[in-house]
């Protein structure tokens, strides 16, 4: 994927995190709005699945950008990008499992 596409997705996920993260915060910290949100657990699980995906993409890409900036080398850039991608996918799979258990779906 082109670097410009990766950074565009970085901004898209940033906006997604603000929206879904706000829902996550309200669900756990606001007694009134939180009850309304948690009344529909399927939608809340969907929110958390999007939140987790966006957050992991944004966080791991942020770390990747810092790492490839530290060592400006083509080979290092390639390997670190693949390593981060694999770690990110594995973390998302584990995270979804944890979410399902925590929200009572499994």
């Amino acid at each position: 994927m082109r670097e410009s596409t990766i950074m565009f997705l970085h901004y898209v996920t940033a906006i997604l995190i603000v929206i879904t993260g706000l829902i996550h915060l309200l669900a756990n910290n606001d007694p009134v709005i939180g009850a309304t949100i948690k009344a529909n657990p399927v939608l809340y699980l969907g929110n958390m699945a999007i939140f987790l995906a966006a957050l992991l993409y944004h966080a791991f890409n942020g770390v990747r950008v810092i790492l490839i900036e530290m060592v400006p080398d083509r080979c290092w850039t390639k390997w670190i990008s693949w390593a981060i991608l694999i770690v990110g996918i594995v973390t998302y799979a584990v995270g979804l499992q944890v979410l399902m258990v925590a929200l009572g779906f499994a």
Partner: peptide, 20 residues
């Protein structure tokens, strides 16, 4: 922005490892 970003990643990893 970079420092807060790194700190958030550290918090998020701890938050994942032990849910909540």
């Amino acid at each position: 922005h970079r420092i807060t970003g790194i700190l958030i990643v550290l918090f998020v990893l701890a938050h994942f490892y032990s849910t909540g």
